[in-house]
Computed example of a mutant assay.
Amino acid sequence: GAFIIERMVEAGVPEGVVNLVQGGRETGEALTGADVDGVLFTGGAKTGLAIHKMFADRLDVILALELGGNNPLIWWDVDDVEAAAFTVVQSAFLTSGQRCTCARRLILPEGPEGDKALLALGKLTERLIVGAPFDEPQPFMGPVISPKIAESLERAFDQLVDRDGVPVKNLSVIDEGKAFVSPGIIDVSMLADSVPDEEHFGPFLKVYRVKDFDDAIARANKTRFGLSAGILTDDKAKWEKFLALSRAGIVNWNRQTTGASGAAPFGGIGDSGNHRPSAYYAADYCAYPVASMEGEGLLAMPEGQVGVR
């Protein structure tokens, strides 16, 4: 954040036009309680809903909410299993799973193909290094945001295990009292719809095994969120069907769910936002359209004007 502000000042933006204010809940409440023209918020759905209610009677305030998601990734009819496993890892565990577009649910076919996929994913996940930014060898993942969040992620994972979820790779706090956790994968197919539709903001991937491709799409869409979604497949027809039926604002084919372009809209539907996509599109909704009709002189009334004696 500070780096961006410094570069803007270097580019000629007057000091004080853009300000970086850091803090917790009290700081956020002070800012949203001020006399503002707009609030652009990126964060959790619970906080976003509170902000939405706060400005429900303020039509004069531009409100743009980007609230994350319980994002699905389908793996179906893929020959290169190792490449697919790497793409899942990039989707689920990049930045320790702390991106709003991270894959939270992996959807696999029942039977040998799904077994092979899960085996390859488990083996690759075992190789991931968790550590501090300047550790050697260089880590793939750093810490989550705080020790408190690390403990809550471990607790949520263990609760699914207690309910007969099948762990593929255990998510656990690495050093007690610190924010480093191992990436976790758990098969919750037997729990199905009883799994809470929540975004666990960390390296926490739930696996669903389904009978056919229609079931895979239905499972992908079975969420109150709708930010990102992806499919890994060699079958272009399956991609086209998924793209047409997917309920998400960012839908990728054979690319990680965490990949997005700033030149395209960034946002989602459902509890993932309020239809104000950020990135390039934010420049449009942060302005207001003005329509004008112009003439250098007035128009004289024509001879024989209808309705005039």
Rank of each mutant, 00 (worst) to 15 (best):
N252K: 12
P203A: 04
F242C: 08
R224H: 08
E136Y: 13
A156G: 09
D187P: 04
D135N: 15
F201D: 02
Q159A: 15
D214N: 10
L243D: 07
I149K: 09
P167I: 08
L232D: 04
A132D: 13
V161E: 00
D271A: 13
D175F: 06
F201G: 06
S228C: 07
N254G: 09
D164F: 11
L245H: 08
R163F: 11
S272G: 08
D193R: 09
K241N: 14
S182Y: 05
D164Q: 14
A179V: 01
N252R: 14
D164V: 03
S189Q: 09
K206I: 03
A264R: 05
Q138A: 15
Y208N: 10
I231V: 08
R209S: 11
R155A: 13
A179K: 05
P137G: 13
K211P: 00
Q138C: 06
I231T: 01
D271Y: 12
K169D: 06
K222C: 11
A179R: 04
F213M: 02
V181S: 09
N252F: 00
L243G: 00
I269W: 12
G270H: 12
K238R: 13
A150L: 05
K236L: 14
D214R: 07
A218E: 11
R224W: 06
S261Y: 02
S172M: 15
I174Q: 06
R255M: 13
Y208W: 12
D193Q: 14
E198I: 11
Q256H: 05
F157W: 00
S272Q: 11
E176I: 09
P147K: 09
V181K: 07
D162E: 15
N252I: 02
R155M: 11
G202N: 03
S182A: 15
S261F: 07
V251P: 06
N254W: 02
G270Q: 08
M190H: 12
P203S: 08
W253E: 05
T223Q: 01
S194I: 09
P196I: 04
V173M: 01
R224D: 10
K238S: 07
F204G: 05
G262D: 11
D187K: 01
E240P: 00
A216N: 02
G268K: 04
T233R: 00
P196A: 09
A229Y: 00
G226P: 02
L160T: 03
S182K: 12
K241D: 14
F204E: 04
R255T: 05
G267C: 10
S194M: 11
R224S: 10
W239Y: 15
P183E: 12
G230F: 00
G226L: 00
R209T: 04
D187C: 02
S152P: 01
F180I: 05
N252P: 05
P167V: 10
T258Q: 07
R209A: 09
I250P: 03
G177M: 14
V188K: 03
E154S: 11
L227N: 02
P203Y: 12
W253H: 15
E198T: 11
I174N: 06
F242M: 13
I185C: 10
I174A: 03
L245D: 11
Q256W: 06
K236V: 12
A156M: 12
F180E: 06
M141D: 13
E176T: 09
E136H: 10
Q256Y: 01
S272F: 08
V173R: 01
Q138R: 13
K206V: 06
R224F: 04
I145R: 00
G262Q: 11
G249K: 04
G249N: 07
T258E: 10
W239G: 01
D215S: 08
